[in-house]
Amino acid sequence: MPPVLQVRDLQVSYYTDSGRARALDGVTLELNPGEKLGLVGESGSGKSTMALAMMRMIKPPGRIEGGQVIVGDTDLMALSEEGMRKSRLSKIAYIPQGAMNSLNPVMRIGAQMIDAIRAHNPSESRAGAQERCLSALESVDLKRGVYKMYAHELSGGMKQRVCIAISILMRPQVIIADEPTSALDVVTQRQVMETLDHIQHQLGCAIILIGHDMGLMAQFVDKVAVMYAGRLMELSSVREMFNDPKHPYAQALIRSLPSLENKGVFQGIPGLAPSLLRLPSGCAFNPRCTFVMDVCKSTVPAFLPLPPSERRVACHLYAGDAEAMSLSTRTATPTEKV
């Protein structure tokens, strides 16, 4: 099955008074239909920039400086502004952080949903559009009555589900959800995540979940991408990530998780995330890394596959394995063809 989303070498910089900040530095990933990817990292690691760049919603002083975002067979970066506007919501939908607080307080929920449909399909009949909104509300487990309500009449979890309903109106192939549950309590959080899971099955779309709660990732996604200072450090299946993280940063992240067994043990990650304006040379993680070598301070590690699995890691510790692997595949491919 061809991947539904391909991000190739995506580059975004912010030009500030104190210099150029590379918020995304050559991010590459692929997503198959029906797959759920978790994007984790500390604040400032570039997670939200990644989402905005995929939507082509980066505003000055930020600029997308290169790369491709291919949804289905369309390269979003090559589209005209009007073409991109049409693609948002119908090819790729984005639920921003705190979306539930951006519902218009003086418009009924239904009117806001109709707005979204009209922007794409001005000719659609009122009745048809309304029916589409109502069924979207039903698929996120809300009553039809919500259509006629105002935002203040809904609880946080319900507002968040309204935002999910809006995002599925045009049946997109990819949905990006940026910290959809960060302000909700655990019970509501679980309900919102179950809703996302449910619509993912219904539409067969791919979901990118952005967040820093590894617990949520363990319970929801299929693949986890760990981001640090604008680069992907590791991309693995959720099982590999939790049982055997490879990148030292991923290892530290997994170690810092609380569990019921080790009461009272707090293992933070020492040091601070680097400023994007003054990245350390070589691997950005080297000042905080416990396995730091000389090569880490001079050369940026490439994001290489780590056979036999499909995972990828950007760390010099595994450079040998990856090279050996890529050699063996290079020699192996011709024989396979025979």
Partner: peptide, 15 residues
């Protein structure tokens, strides 16, 4: 509340 905590533990499934 406790059932709804997303534990970072693959053997302890949510739901």
């Amino acid at each position: 509340l406790i059932d709804s905590i997303p534990w970072p533990d693959l053997s302890r499934r949510w739901g």
